[in-house]
């Protein structure tokens, strides 16, 4: 699949091209199948595939050792899985559901993000204090960007201009200019920052901190500063167990969902006022979150209980838990 080069095509055209590409895909018989949810099981070296209609595991894909973060290639044909102990990214063909190739990815790749415009995958290499950039079509290393100690979370702006890398020991959000491929701003956030997620309009970034149990909101238009900190207080739960990890934001700007780790809760936050609206009880040690295509459902991975909780977004209710492999880490819904 040829990629669209940056700057030469307007976003509107890009979307149209994407829609066309998707449209032609939809003509295929495969189009009839329901939404699929992919869950990486860190201890089992597998990816579970859940059928979005029956809410059951329909397939289990064997991958490399210690699978964690996942991302789709921009053309939606492959699923990339960071397999940390194999120091690689396994690429799963979404038709055959098999690993078709594996790309070496430096020391202990944990979190990956795919560039919306270029065939780039960004990888946080925890042991080397760098973010690696790999061209997944040419299968070459593009560059390495130095950041703080133990880079972990990565977030990419919808326009592909900014990448945020969070470093767990430096406790910083490093804001990387993807044109220059270098970190240009460094902002302190809460202890052990884990995850970065841009709002759909690209104006803010939500950065969660596991140990501090907070989410820092960064202004991504002018100052790049932390302009608000959201704290969580789950009644009846020890404060130390409230640890913020995964973040999912609805595209209409209404809700934010924050996984609160060993407190076994997902916080529902008003995306505009930052007010915490509710805490939803899910499985044990909830880690990452994903919204489905029409954002009617939220899926959570619960590491200790080894399951996925399904939450209906309309009435903010957990409706089902689906047993998956051991230590489910990441979750992603097929676009």
């Amino acid at each position: 699949m040829p990629f669209l080069s940056r700057g030469s095509v307007s976003p509107a055209i890009k979307h149209a091209v994407c829609a066309l590409a998707l449209g032609s895909l939809l003509m295929l018989p495969l189009a009839a199948q329901a939404e699929r949810i992919f869950v990486s099981n860190e201890k089992d070296n597998t990816v579970s595939v859940i059928d979005g209609e029956s809410l059951e595991v329909v397939e289990t894909i064997r991958v490399g050792r210690r699978p964690r973060a996942m991302a789709f290639s921009s053309d939606g044909s492959e699923l990339f899985v960071a397999v940390g102990d194999d120091e690689a990214i396994d690429m799963i063909d979404l038709e055959s559901l098999q690993v078709v190739r594996s790309q070496s990815a430096g020391d202990d790749p944990e979190v990956i993000r795919v560039d919306p415009n270029r065939p780039h995958v960004y990888i946080s290499n925890e042991d080397d204090n760098i973010v690696s950039v790999i061209d997944y079509e040419r299968r070459t290393l593009v560059t390495e960007i130095p950041v703080g100690v133990e880079p972990e979370g990565l977030g990419i702006s919808p326009d592909g201009r900014w990448l945020i890398s969070t470093s767990e020991t430096s406790n910083m959000a490093h804001i990387i200019d993807l044109e220059a491929m270098e970190a240009v701003h460094h902002r302190l956030v809460g202890a052990r920052p884990r995850h970065a997620e841009f709002t759909h309009d690209g104006r803010k970034a939500w950065v969660s901190s596991e140990i501090a149990g907070v989410v820092s909101i960064l202004d991504m238009e002018e100052s790049f500063d932390v302009e608000h900190v959201i704290r969580f207080d789950v009644p009846g739960v020890p404060r130390e167990t409230v640890q913020a990890v995964g973040v999912a934001l609805t595209s209409d700007g209404r809700y934010a969902f924050v996984a609160l780790g060993p407190s076994n809760r997902v916080a529902v936050v008003d995306q505009q006022s930052y007010e915490v609206l509710d805490y939803l009880l899910v499985g044990q040690r909830v880690w990452h979150l994903a919204l489905n295509g029409d954002e009617s459902r939220l899926y959570t991975t619960n590491g200790v209980s080894g399951d996925v909780t399904v939450i209906e977004v309309d009435d903010l209710r957990a409706v089902k838990s689906i047993p998956v492999g051991r230590f489910p880490w990441g979750v992603i819904v097929e676009p």
Partner: peptide, 21 residues
Amino acid sequence: MRTLSRSLCWLAMGGLACGLA
């Protein structure tokens, strides 16, 4: 990959040491 990664690292940082240093 490892060798490549190391040499790129040196290039990217203009000869400054990578990693912990």
